[in-house]
């Protein structure tokens, strides 16, 4: 079973499959941001609060993306923890103008980082400080400090924060590029390390 899964995952990665989980508080702009990651954008997009979750699948830059857009409303936040398995990366979107709820965002991010699938798998975390165009928005550094990102071990959990404006797609592309690079270099590293290791010890 372990061997089968390993082969499958290696083959999946080689074909360029990316499964990304997008989380963040409600009204932070997750669905709008995903709309800008998609290559062929809908002509009119009207953001409505997501109920439960939505899955978007598309191909971009020779990669097959599967993006799971979780609802950020507090009653649906309990769902997040069930979608971390088989995910390659996590995108955490935060509303950089919402100073009063920064503590809640920090708490939820800590919950994500504490999750078994995230903690020890070296899964990269990309944080979008969204709504950067609005007056009174916090800078990248401020957001990183408020969320306590600077205390993260970069080796254990690679992270990156990108200021974005999901309405026009500013900064979205840069973040995704970082994510793709990180994942590719990580998979390269993993292949070399796994080659050295005896079989059956790498994956669960």
């Amino acid at each position: 079973m372990g061997l089968f899964k390993k082969i499958a995952s290696a083959m999946g990665r080689s074909r360029g499959n990316m499964r990304i989980l997008v989380v963040g508080l409600d009204n932070s702009g997750k669905s709008t941001l995903i709309e800008h990651i998609k290559p062929n954008k809908a002509s009119t997009f009207e953001a409505t609060p997501t109920v439960g979750f939505q899955v978007q699948e598309f191909a971009k830059n020779n990669l097959n993306f599967t993006v799971i857009d979780m609802s950020g409303q507090s009653r649906y936040r309990t769902l997040w923890e069930h979608y971390f398995c088989n995910v390659h990366a996590v995108i955490f979107v935060v509303d950089s103008t919402d100073r009063v709820r920064m503590c809640v965002a920090k708490e939820e991010l800590e919950e994500v980082l504490k999750h078994d699938e995230v903690q020890n798998s070296g899964m990269p975390i990309l944080v979008y400080a969204n709504k950067g165009d609005l007056p009174g928005s916090m800078s990248r550094q401020e957001c990183a400090d408020e969320l306590g990102l600077s205390g993260l071990n970069d080796e254990q959990t690679p992270w990156h924060i990108e200021k974005s404006n999901a309405l026009v797609g500013l900064g979205v592309e840069e973040g995704v590029n970082w994510l793709v690079q990180t994942l590719q270099s990580a998979s390269g590293r993993r292949e070399t390390t796994e080659g050295r290791r005896s079989s059956g010890s790498g994956h669960k």
Binding site: D26, V100, C103, V104, E107, E108
Partner: peptide, 26 residues
């Protein structure tokens, strides 16, 4: 409820300070 969060506690002190606490979801 305050600022899209269901549970918030607003405390005003006698000297007029305003403090807001959020109820942890967990």
């Amino acid at each position: 409820p305050y600022a899209r969060e269901d549970g918030a506690l607003a405390v005003v002190s006698v000297t007029g300070k305003l403090t807001i606490f959020m109820l942890n979801r967990k």
